[in-house]
Design a protein around this nucleic acid. Sequence first.
RNA 1: GAGCCGGUAGCUCAGCGGUAGAGCAGUGGCCUUUUAAGCCAUUGGUCGUGGGUUCGAUUCCCACCCGGCUCACCA
Length: 496
Amino acid sequence: MSRHFDEENPLVQVRLEKLQKLRSMGLDPFAVERYPITHPLEAIHEQFETLEGQTVCVAGRIFSIRQMGRATFAHLMDTTGKLQIYLKADELGERYSLIDLWDLGDYLGVKGFVFRTRTGEITVHVQEFTLLAKAVRPVPFPKEKGEQRWFELHDVEQRYRQRYLDLLVNPESRRRLLARCRIVSEIRRFLESEGFIEVETPVLQPMAGGAAARPFITYHNALQREFQLRIALELYLKRVLIGGIDKVFEIGRVFRNEGISTRHNPEFTMLELYQAYANLEDIMELVERLFRTVAERVFGTTVFEMHGVQVDFSQPWRRVRLMDAIHEYTGLTEADFETLERAAQAAEKLGIHIERKDTVGGIIEKVLEKCVAEHLQQPTFVYSFPIETSPLAKREPDNPRFTRRFEGYVFGKEVANAFSELNDPLEQRERFEQQLALRQAGDEEAHPYDEDFLHAMEYGMPPAGGLGIGIDRMVMLLTGTDSIREVIFFPQMREG
RNA sequence: GAGCCGGUAGCUCAGCGGUAGAGCAGUGGCCUUUUAAGCCAUUGGUCGUGGGUUCGAUUCCCACCCGGCUCACCA
């Protein structure tokens, strides 16, 4: 796929010649700035009863064209839909021949009256038209009839690299990506209606914390220092909480320096929220309400299906202790994880690869990932996570090896992560020290020791429940999509 | 990082040792309510890149690039 302007391409040449002709007639399409439309295209269909016989102005891209001598039919397309237009030579005079200078993909504005053709299609009978912009490169619009389409843009690489073409040409892609926009919008609306305030916190951070992941490094010239791109929103949102904003959230891009896969893009969108005076169970209920509300508002249903499994977000989610879930699906008991040695043995038996840096808690989470997650098809909260992998969560009072943390699973995939947040600055300091030890033992993703954050917490942080949701993965499950790239407008690609 | 599959015209694809094909799009012609419009004619390709084998390579071999899937790494 060449990135230069290939004027030698005959298809481009033809279009450039047409552009030249238009310009020589004083009809430069690129000189046009505005076209006063009276209706989006879909509105003509919706309001046909009242619009029949009325004059309207509409605009869109030429999606198809059928010239039949002295009469021409074409379809325009805009964000809302498509509309047929009809042009007659004996009414348009010399201007009729300008149609020869049109190509698929050109932007056209027309004025005319609304009618129904002999075959019943709602159409605008054009009296005046203006070419509003030209496509000098061929746009691969498909042929279509009803729901059937031919010669569609299929090449996955091209669909991702040139998403504008994918959006233009493939209705499924458009639907899926627009669904993403509406999901984000409805999440905001829901949280605001629950009294949460949206804030924006730094992307450039001295020390990226709040999650276990390697950061991207960048450099600030004037300050002559490195910064890290954030890997989570957590620590700054907690500072806001300490600042007295009791219900706070952020929807923002985070960056993790990892491999790319069907489920991982180096930059992705997180929702995090914190609610003072709320605990883990309150957050569970909030998650249930969030999914139910967004599902209803965006899709008009709470029932979703993926790979033949049906889930219903109008129902409460199952709640299960992590160790109980492990017992249920592997037969292992807590005793099997008493010591690092036993835990490693148990995991190896399940075919899980253990590394030197793994802790008992790390191994437990691996077992969850490899052997349990796939069974959690119905919406499930798995709670009570090991303390080693949860340095920012409160300890369980009667079980100090575990924390007040849950992960939400749907269709076997993790979609939410939440805790009763640790707000004891003395314990937080100890937890950071433990993480430091892990880091020194070779765990690059151990949580960094953030003195500034500790300082903030020492002024007093309220008891609070916190939640993180990967928006991209939430969109995947609500749209039944297997690849994260399909729900990101411009997924990361190697240089092409 | 490993394995498998793929990259041929603007788009969708076929071809697979003898100097490249179809449909649609494009171009020219006929056609004043068509709709995958139709009919006739026609243009268009360094067959991902670079090496090698061969009289000859899109086709066989090697390396590389890009993509997809699976696994690994990774929330």
